[in-house]
């Protein structure tokens, strides 16, 4: 060291301040985001922003006929993205539809993340009867085909329309709960795997030796290391939920008209494939681009938060 340290070690050691030379040279510092990440972020920002601000944006009424039926997109004098079979503005319908699709996807994955993530943490950390029971539970849930599970959950939650005095949850809530429950075992399994490997590290043993309780170890030592994997899988899960919502809509399980989601737009657009395919392709493109963006960002985030554990 060139500068004399003002303090001296009580043991008379030379103080080491600067990190190990090798430590910094091998560790590649974080680079800027690539163009693809920025495109993904831009797309998601536009989607989320327009969905959030749909009511204040100068959009046509998504449920009223405003143009000739099946008006083709990008023609002067009409809606920029054209009009559907009822003459409704496609742009406005895509944005309003996206709003519901995104709400369903985000909320259902948050349900899955909180419940599944928490159970996964417990299952990975307590490798005793509790862990075994949880793992068994996840396995059983994962063994049921997810579409079947989602459909049956929807039909149970929706209540019976023929019994008006029975309980009736709004369909959006039903979809959120159904997709959320389906995602619980998936998110739990991934969280558990990551927790398992981190909680076997010596620093966890060291924390126990210092008298740290289970809660402190789980939330201070383990969770921060597991969180990046959970976050990236959350984005991936949202992408899947958006697609899954579309799938359910095609099977006829979705919001009632005139409300729409990307899923219902795809479902109704199917019949226009011959005359006006854009009515189908526009919502498909919205789903596709959003899912790809989420997926890609999930990967980028995982890589960036993948801590360099050491210089060694």
């Amino acid at each position: 060291m060139t500068t004399v340290p003002p303090e001296v070690s009580p043991l008379g050691l030379t103080l080491e301040a600067a990190p190990h030379a090798a430590a910094e040279s091998t560790a590649t510092r974080k680079k800027g985001l690539g163009i693809a990440s920025w495109l993904a972020i831009a797309w998601l920002t536009i989607m989320v922003g327009s969905a959030a601000l749909a009511d204040v944006l100068p959009l046509k009424d998504p449920n009223a006929g405003v143009a000739p039926k099946r008006f083709a997109p990008f023609q002067s004098g009409g809606p920029i993205l054209g009009a559907d079979a009822n003459g409704r503005d496609m742009l406005s319908r895509t944005i309003y539809g996206g709003r519901i699709s995104l709400i369903i996807a985000v909320c259902s994955i948050l349900v899955g993340l909180f419940i599944g993530g928490f159970l996964g943490l417990l299952a990975g950390y307590f490798r005793n009867w509790l862990g075994n029971i949880l793992v068994g539970l996840f396995d059983i849930l994962l063994a049921i085909p997810q579409l079947v599970l989602a459909l049956s959950l929807v039909s149970v939650l929706k209540g019976d329309p023929n019994i008006p005095e029975g309980f009736h949850l709004p369909i959006i809530l039903v979809l959120i709960i159904a997709l959320g429950l389906v995602s619980i075992p998936i998110l739990a399994r991934i969280t558990r795997a990551s927790t398992l490997s981190w909680s076997q590290r010596d620093f966890v043993t060291a924390a126990r030796a210092q008298g740290a309780g289970h809660g402190r170890i789980l939330f201070r030592e383990v969770l921060p290391n597991v969180a990046p994997a959970m976050f990236s899988i959350t984005l991936l899960g949202m992408a899947i939920a958006i697609v899954a919502e579309g799938g359910l809509a095609i099977l006829g399980v979705s919001v009632e008209p005139p409300q729409s989601t990307w899923g219902t737009m795809i479902a109704t657009g199917k019949s226009e494939l011959d005359g006006a395919p854009f009515i189908l392709w526009i919502p498909i493109a919205a789903v596709f681009l959003t899912a790809v963006s989420l997926n890609y960002l999930g990967d980028v985030i995982r890589d960036r938060f993948d801590v360099r554990e050491s210089a060694l």
């Binding site: 050691l13 030379t14 080491e16 600067a18 190990h20 030379a21 040279s25």
Partner: peptide, 9 residues
Amino acid sequence: IGGRPPDLV
């Protein structure tokens, strides 16, 4: 040996 090797940069 006290200290550490120099920074290779």
